[in-house]
Write a protein that binds this DNA or RNA. Sequence first.
DNA 1: ATGGCAGGTACGACCTGA
Length: 258
Amino acid sequence: MKIASWNLNSLHARQAHLLAWLGSRRPDLVALQETKLEDHRFPDAELAAAGYRSVFAGQKTYNGVALLARADAVPAFSELQIGIPGFEDPQKRAIAATVGDLRIVNLYVVNGQAVGSEKYDYKLRFLDALHDWLAEEIRRHPQLVVLGDFNIAPDDRDVHDPKAWEGQVLCSAAERHAFERLRALGLHDSYRLKHEAGGAFSWWDYRAAGFRRNLGLRIDLVLLATALLPRCRAASIDLEPRSWERPSDHAPVLVELD
DNA sequence: ATGGCAGGTACGACCTGA
């Protein structure tokens, strides 16, 4: 069972990349972020033709999340949840569903813009509400996968220049503390289970040739609940789509479960 | 040292991203 997360930075702009990648990697479950599409524009027919069912929650211009599942490999989605229950939010940043014995929560966590800003405050409130929701999810569904664009680099190994980023948004103490609280629920960063070394990133700034110079951050994560750890075979970051024309600034991240 | 790119909206310039 191959599970992936990819921030596409516009599904409209990256639809051909997505279809090519689905065809070559054949993931069983995919979480997408920043689709930037209203629901009536979501290409569910094209994805169905490629063999994938989809559920989605989008809006114009910003945000937007979706889950895809290979129709011939996994059961249909059920128990669909859009948004964090009880957290009033017009921004489409969370979608969850049950697929077979797995519960999948796909997140596009708030960026936060700058420490101390209004958006940063919104980010911390989002993370607080997320914590309480996931506490309930993991209680009801021990086989929980929480994945997506967390917009937090968990520790300094996940940052190309920790000195330059120290205290900045995506790396600040309050954000990392919020991430630690998610971990404390019994959610484990799958990439870190399999790889100790730093310098592996999932996002690079379009400016200043960030990818070419590997000036990046690892902020796209697949968290596995403790019950799933014995099934985790591999975790990786797929750099190939970065070599394609007009790539997303994020790379897909993957886990393989038995 | 600074700012640099990209997508969307809507057609000019701005907002947001991370």
